[in-house]
Design a protein around this nucleic acid. Structure first.
Lengths: 95, 95
DNA sequence: TCCGTATTTCGTGAAACATCAAAATAGCAT
DNA sequence: ATGCTATTTTGATGTTTCACGAAATACGGA
């Protein structure tokens, strides 16, 4: 379950996608490709991997497709892994 | 700086190494290979990647080499990435 | 329907990665 | 030095990943 998350996070461009998406609510695939300076097909592949890992959510808006990050998935994958390392917080109920 | 950490964490066997190392202080390379059921050379390669990412520390003890996990590196890499996502705690002085 | 824009899928070549056996290295003991 | 054990390096091989152009698909508008 966390397998896909860590695989997705292993590529610098995919981490950059998540950073680019952070803060703003949505961003168009084309704008992402331009901001990160990668070709459309290249970004599309990265977005597919991120989507399959549930790290981003996509939504078609007319002829465009917009993406939003799913930071909570990153958080819980990190928390689970740290916990398996014995580093996790004992009480998961804060916030 | 976190680049190597995320690349290292992308492989299931390398995450398993860190989990196996968690808790115990040190573990011999050979015992790790047996516990994880991978051939010696295979594990040695994974250990090299973990070492270069500073995720494990090695120390020669006579004819054996023992390894210890460096969980704090995982923690800080995760914290830094979450912060770059705007998810990090704004004030690190509450608990 | 036909056109234009946005995005994804397909195909391909290059580069990186993973595995393991065999050979090399390191240390300790005799 | 010789031998023994533990680990790493090397080399060969198969698999996966990455990047991008070209083609396909999806949508909305004229």
């Amino acid at each position: 379950m966390a397998d896909g998350v860590f695989a997705a996070l292993s590529h610098p461009t995919r981490r950059a996608v998540l950073r680019e998406l952070a803060g703003r609510d949505w961003m168009l695939a084309g704008d992402l490709a331009e901001a990160l300076d990668v070709a459309g097909p290249t970004l599309s592949g990265h977005l597919r991997i991120l989507r399959e890992a549930d790290l981003v959510v996509s939504e078609r808006r007319g002829t465009t497709i917009r993406y939003m990050a799913n930071a909570s998935v990153v958080e819980s994958a990190f928390a689970a892994f740290l916990q398996s390392l014995g580093v996790g917080r004992a009480d998961p109920e804060n916030e």
